[in-house]
Every structure is written in structure tokens, then in C-alpha cells.
């Protein structure tokens, strides 16, 4: 019975979702035409009104998320499978259904931003190469690598997606030119350079530990003592040896109080009693600020970005 209700719910068309074979193509065409018309209309809007369009869309995009939290719904409601009983519930269901398309639109927009970023990057570097500006050689390297990686990556994806129904290309023995080239460029070069860049931090940390971490105040001493306990606790061999020593001491003296001096016990105490409450307090402040900023952005009160 539950399965039937579930399947019915899944196949039910709603305002936000049209199923294949029910005029879906017409809706897609209408949506596309509307989109083009809207884009054209936006280009014609006077600049003093553009702010209000941005504010309006920001408000509309945030509205379903806010309403989904605030709109009353029956206790224990299953918004995917239940059927609304009255207008209030119907509105709640529609708001809930709106979250998916709004979320998908923001996903598309975010992906679109990646495209805009790539376009901007390529344009800047092509201009640099054309004008032979300072370090234009690096720009040439970037553009050549970009073109090679894109071509090889796309061809590899195309062959895996459309010409390899049985997944033969998952086995390196079946690889062709594009699989080897992609592996060399992505795994062999890009990924290794990524790791190498990050590993350089180790040198800075060691240098900073030697030159900059100075005990000049009580606060610095407390911080260093805490850091030392936490660092020592990361060393399993030491923790184990220290813990075994403490356990023998407890057996010899019969006093379990010494167990508090095991490294992992001290580190746990530091984490749960000092570190976590401090982080929680900082998070609390940060999220209050984020909430205030979110409200200002959503209601169009934030001047920067929108007006500039």
C-alpha cells in the first residue's frame, strides 16, 4: 500500500514539474522563449531600475527556503508521499515542491559562473599574449595547457560515455591514446603539482615554529603547553608507552587518580572542555553575523554589490 502511494506521489505532476509525454516539449519551448524574452527585456531596463530587479530575484530565490521553515505543517507530515487535505496544507506542499527547482536553478547558475570564470581567464590571457605584456610567456603556457587538458579530457569523457557500453575502458589494458594522455596530464602532472604546492606549507610551519613561536607571555605559555599535549597525543607510540607507564603506576600505588595524567585523557579533556566550547562560542557569533548578513542580502538592505 505504501509503495502504491509512493509511486503515485512520484508520478504526480505538479506546478514545478511536468512529466514526459504530457506536453513537456511545449513547456520547455515556452520556458526557453520566456527566458530569451526576459534576457532581452533585462538589457533594455534603465540602469536605475536594475537594482530592483536584482533585489526582487534575490528575494524570490530565498522565499521558498524561508517559507518552508515557517509555514505550518502537520506534525509528522511526509511531504513527499502525503496528499494535502486543505488549502493551508496545499500551500505548504507547493512551497516544499518549489525547493527542488529553485535549488536546481542555483546549481545551474553556479555552474554557469564556472563558465564565466573560464571565459574571463582565457580573455585576460589572450589579451596579454596579443599585447606581449609582462610575463606573457606564462600566459601562453596557461592557454596551451588549458586547450590540451580540455581537448584530451573531453575526448576521454566522450569515448567513455558514448563508445564504451561495457566499461572496458575502466581497465588500463584497454586504454587508447586519449586515456593515456588524460592520465598523464591529470594524474601524472596536475594532481602531483597540486600535492607539491600544498606540501610546501610544511616548510613554513617548521620555520615559523623555530623563529616565531616564542613564549613571551602567560597566554603564550598556556597555549604552548596545550599545543604540546595535543601534539604529543598524536604520537601513538608515545601515548601508548606513557599510558602503559601510568597504568603500572596505578597498579603499584592503587590510586586511580593517576589515570588522569594519561596523554589521551589530558588531550580529550583539553578538547572537550576547552577547545570545543571555545569553537562553539566563536561559531555562535559567526552564525549570528551570517544570519544578520543573510537577512540584509535577502531583503535588499545591503548596499554593496547590488548598487555598485
Amino acid at each position: 500500500m505504501n509503495n502504491t502511494i509512493f509511486l503515485l506521489a512520484q508520478n504526480t505532476e505538479n506546478f514545478w514539474r511536468k512529466l514526459p509525454g504530457q506536453g513537456l516539449v511545449i513547456w520547455v519551448v515556452i520556458g526557453l522563449l520566456l527566458g530569451i524574452a526576459l534576457l532581452f527585456a533585462f538589457t533594455q531596463v534603465p540602469s536605475n531600475l536594475r537594482r530592483w530587479i536584482i533585489v526582487g530575484f534575490t528575494f524570490l530565490a530565498g522565499l521558498p527556503y524561508v517559507l518552508a521553515y515557517l509555514w505550518p505543517k502537520p506534525i509528522g507530515a511526509d511531504l513527499q508521499n502525503d496528499v494535502p487535505r486543505n488549502l493551508s496544507e496545499q500551500i505548504g506542499f507547493t512551497i516544499n515542491q518549489a525547493i527542488d527547482p529553485v535549488g536546481k536553478i542555483t546549481n545551474v547558475l553556479q555552474a554557469f559562473l564556472l563558465g564565466v570564470g573560464i571565459f574571463s581567464l582565457v580573455r585576460v590571457h589572450i589579451t596579454k599574449v596579443r599585447r606581449k605584456s609582462e610575463n606573457w610567456g606564462f600566459s601562453t603556457v596557461l592557454l596551451v595547457c588549458f586547450a590540451l587538458m580540455t581537448t584530451v579530457g573531453f575526448m576521454d569523457w566522450r569515448q567513455r560515455k558514448f563508445m564504451d557500453d561495457n566499461g572496458l575502458l575502466n581497465e588500463p589494458s584497454n586504454w587508447g591514446f586519449f586515456q593515456y594522455a588524460n592520465d598523464l596530464m591529470f594524474e601524472g602532472m596536475y594532481q602531483q603539482m597540486d600535492s607539491a604546492m600544498f606540501s610546501m606549507i610544511a616548510f613554513f610551519i617548521l620555520s615559523a615554529a623555530y623563529r616565531a613561536f616564542r613564549i613571551r607571555s602567560v597566554e603564550a605559555t598556556v597555549m604552548m603547553a596545550s599545543a604540546l599535549i595535543l601534539m604529543l597525543n598524536l604520537m601513538g607510540a608515545l601515548t601508548y608507552a606513557w599510558g602503559t607507564g601510568i597504568e603500572s603506576l596505578v597498579v603499584q600505588t592503587g590510586n586511580p587518580f593517576f589515570m588522569n595524567f594519561k596523554l589521551n585523557v589530558m588531550a580529550d579533556w583539553l578538547r572537550s572542555t576547552m577547545q570545543i566550547p571555545a569553537i562553539r562560542a566563536i561559531d555562535f557569533g559567526v552564525f549570528l553575523g551570517a544570519l544578520a548578513m543573510g537577512l540584509r542580502l535577502w531583503l535588499g538592505l545591503e548596499k554593496g554589490g547590488v548598487s555598485s
Binding site: G103, K104, N107
Partner: peptide, 19 residues
């Protein structure tokens, strides 16, 4: 890859089959 973590996780929580 899903391009927007906030929307992706919210959609998954709201309706995984739709997301």
C-alpha cells in the same frame, strides 16, 4: 559533481528522488 553544496544538500534532504 554538484555545483552548489547548499542547494544540493537541501534538495537531497527535501526529496532525494527529485534532487
Amino acid at each position: 559533481y554538484f555545483a552548489n553544496a547548499e542547494a544540493t544538500n537541501t534538495n537531497m534532504g527535501t526529496d532525494l528522488r527529485q534532487a
